[in-house]
Design a binder for these strands. Structure first.
Lengths: 115, 115
DNA sequence: GTTACTCGCAACCAAAGGTTGCAGGAGGTA
DNA sequence: TACCTCCTGCAACCTTTGGTTGCGAGTAAC
């Protein structure tokens, strides 16, 4: 079962569209704070801060206190793992669909031979 | 930006773990009703029915009234598209990470040459 | 016709994403 | 030092969503 392979915390962390955009921004800029990210997003700083908390607990980002700022950076290994899980679920579904197609074709063939 | 390529309705439909398990079950069994699915899941029939509504509106499943039952089947094309989107987001993140690694290595090299 | 099973609707609850408002700490500057 | 600015964190509140229970209605089988 494809979902059995998936770390549900990791998945739910990347399941939210705002959090995915935040990861994109962090990757593009290298790092960012709740304030800088909120300036590039259609949500408030507090919403971003909550999301950063979720991503932090999921291990996808890590914080570095820097003066009065709290600078966040993507954890490469964790995001790689998340990317791999996405790909694996997609691949699993594809494989199932292909299997179903082959079975359907086999049934067609059998019917033609019978009829 | 990776998220820009993603149909948000489609993604949010497959973002829920229960809905992913439902898709897995529908693929494995070929078809199912709210009642049969709920028997294989840790949630009630009504919850399953709501999820089927979400999946239906996202186009990932289609319903066929069959006597007193309402039989649901996966829409192959739509799920293929969803799988492709998952894979593409994962691939995009991978590509960004690799790019960052190459840049980091280039900086290392430059520093060694300078120093 | 009665019994059993399925579906759909409505009310209700808890968690999550989002908002506003406010207090506090770290820097820069007169 | 005092002041002003900016970033952070906490708390209250609203709305959506995943989930529940309860109930009424239709279909199938005996």
């Amino acid at each position: 079962m494809s979902t059995a392979l998936v770390d549900d915390d990791l998945w739910s962390a990347i399941g939210d569209p705002t959090r995915r955009r935040m990861l994109d921004l962090l990757l593009a800029d290298g790092a960012g704070t709740a304030t800088t990210l909120s300036r590039q997003l259609p949500v408030t700083r507090q919403a971003v801060a909550k999301h950063l908390g979720v991503l932090d607990r999921a291990g996808l980002v890590r914080a570095t206190p820097d003066g009065r700022e709290k600078r966040y950076r993507v954890d490469d290994h964790r995001l790689e793992r998340a990317a791999a899980q996405l790909a694996s679920v997609g691949a699993e579904w594809d494989a199932r669909l292909q299997r179903i197609k082959r079975i359907a074709e086999a049934i067609q063939t059998t019917r033609s031979e019978d009829g």
